[in-house]
Structures are given as C-alpha cells and as structure tokens.
C-alpha cells in the first residue's frame, strides 16, 4: 500500500523534497501521488499476455554515425559560461565526502 513512507523513498531517489511549493503543506503532493498511482491500477484490466512492449514508435531510424571527430571552436567555453560555479575550467560542487 502506498503511503507517505513510500512517497518519501521515491522522492529520495528523485532528489526532491516532499513539499508543495504552492501551500507549503506536506499533505497535498503525497495525497495526489497516492491518488494518481491508484488510478494507474486500471491497467491491471488490460489483456497484455504475450504482448511485445512498444517503447518507442521509431520507423526507419538513423543508422550509427561514422567515427569522425568534429571540432566546434568556442563551444566548450560557451558551455562553461553557464556553470553556476567554476574553478578554472572545472565545474565545481561542494566537496564530496
């Protein structure tokens, strides 16, 4: 049975806190979650025995590419400019213990 504890475990995996930023009350997001998951149980009625899952409706997809390096001057620097924190050319985060 889904409850706040299981919602908490899922939130942990997703790196999210269980707060509702509109009201800052904890109930909402958990209740919604339980209710939504409950609705998904309708799938139990679908006859899927032996049915091959369809993950992506790709038709005539691109073949693998050639192993040829491409140089795009300035691109790396432009990407680095967006970093919230940098040390030299490194992206920086709090020390991992």
């Amino acid at each position: 049975m889904l409850d706040e504890k299981s919602a908490k475990a899922v939130a942990e995996l997703a790196r999210l806190e269980l707060v509702d930023s509109d009201s800052h009350s904890r109930g909402n997001i958990v209740d919604d979650f339980v209710k939504i998951v409950g609705y998904m149980d309708i799938l139990a009625h679908a006859q899927t025995e032996g049915v091959d899952p369809l993950y992506c409706p790709i038709i005539e997809a691109q073949p693998p590419r050639a192993d040829e390096p491409k140089s795009r001057p300035g691109l790396a620097d432009k990407i680095l400019e967006e970093a919230p924190e940098r040390v030299g050319r490194f992206f920086a985060v709090p020390r991992i213990v």
Binding site: E85, V87, G88, R89, F90, F91, A92, V93, P94, R95, I96
Partner: peptide, 15 residues
Amino acid sequence: KCVHDEKRGRTLVDL
C-alpha cells in the same frame, strides 16, 4: 572525472 580540492573544499568536475 572528479578531482577533490581539499583547500577549497570543492569537488571539481572534468567531463
């Protein structure tokens, strides 16, 4: 790769 910078207390990321 992560490099740990003790002095600054940061972990530095090289992709």
